[in-house]
């Protein structure tokens, strides 16, 4: 059985007002345990609304979300429990930091979960380790950290709840290229160790191509496709019609192939491209 099962999910904003808008429309899919799913789509395609329905921050107007086979809204009073199961990192999460010290801020989630002081200490330090926050930073005020450190502290605050599913809404937005790479590597390191499910919303096709097992594409509230990166990024025209593009390296390699070089299809990362090119040069005896 899959971990997350979404059935005919729909959400309409402002029902009965002039501002009525269907943000998510008849969306069905299932996500397995331990999977890394990338979620891409144009601005306003309903990505964030969909993500917030996964942990019950938004109540769907149609359809249901099943986690471990039970509808999360079966007992509306216990919706808080779902939030510990499905952790959600919002866009620009550093704006949610509030406590006196970084340690206290990261412990906010675990404390709400009702862990003992001992367990809190363990889980906070573990979470800080995942995002490489130095122990000395934990006693500082979160407002004294640098931008990147703030971001990592905020993500640690969600990781510390030890959720089975971690949803990240554009975690690398506004970071410099190196910061992006480091943060993604840390998230993937966490994923490998904890073996939990990750849903990554991103505008960076490169990031998604690099880490996702499957990619779901949303357009105007609908699920356009959900498949492996190779398949998704082979539909260049379709993606372009939705205002999306393929990773730069995929485009370059496709165009080189059209020019007559014998590369294989669906190259998604620079490393793969490097191997391909080196392989081709060796074959032609130029290397």
């Amino acid at each position: 059985m899959s971990l997350i099962e979404v059935k005919n999910l729909g959400f309409t904003y402002g029902v009965g007002t002039p501002f009525e808008k269907k943000a998510v429309d008849n969306l069905s899919l299932s996500i397995n345990e331990g999977e890394v799913v990338g979620l891409i789509g144009h601005t306003g395609s309903g990505k964030s609304t969909f993500a917030q329905m996964l942990n019950g921050l938004i109540k769907p107007t149609e359809g249901q979300v099943l986690i471990d086979g039970t509808d999360i809204w079966a007992k509306p009073k216990e919706i808080r429990k779902i939030r510990f199961k499905v952790g959600m990192v919002f866009q620009y999460p550093e704006y949610q930091l509030f406590d006196e010290t970084v340690y206290k801020d990261i412990s906010f989630g675990p404390r709400n979960k009702g862990l003992s002081e001992n367990e809190i200490n363990k889980t906070v330090r573990k979470a800080a380790e995942f995002v490489s926050l130095d122990d000395s930073l934990l006693e500082k005020s979160p407002f004294d950290l640098s931008g990147g450190e703030k971001r990592r502290a905020a993500i640690a605050g969600v990781i510390a709840m030890d959720p089975d599913v971690l949803v990240l809404d554009e975690p690398t937005a506004g970071l410099d290229p190196k910061g992006r790479d480091v943060l993604l590597a840390q998230i993937m390191g966490y994923h490998r160790e904890r073996k939990n499910t990750i849903i990554l919303i991103s505008h960076s096709m490169e990031d998604v191509a690099r880490i996702a097992d499957r990619i779901m594409v949303m357009n105007r509230g609908r699920l356009e496709m959900i498949d492996t990166p190779k398949v998704v990024f082979s539909r260049v025209e379709r993606l372009r019609s939705m205002g999306l593009r393929v990773p730069q390296i995929t485009r370059i390699m496709t165009e080189l192939k059209q020019k007559g070089y014998e590369f294989s299809d669906g190259i998604l990362t620079v490393d793969q491209a490097f191997d391909e090119i080196v392989g081709l040069l060796k074959k032609e005896g130029k290397l």
Binding site: L57, R83, F84, F90, P93, Q96, G109, M161
Partner: peptide, 13 residues
């Protein structure tokens, strides 16, 4: 709204 959602996501009651 945003901050409330973010803190609720961290289990704020």
């Amino acid at each position: 709204d945003k901050i409330m959602s973010a803190q609720k996501a961290r289990g704020a009651d």
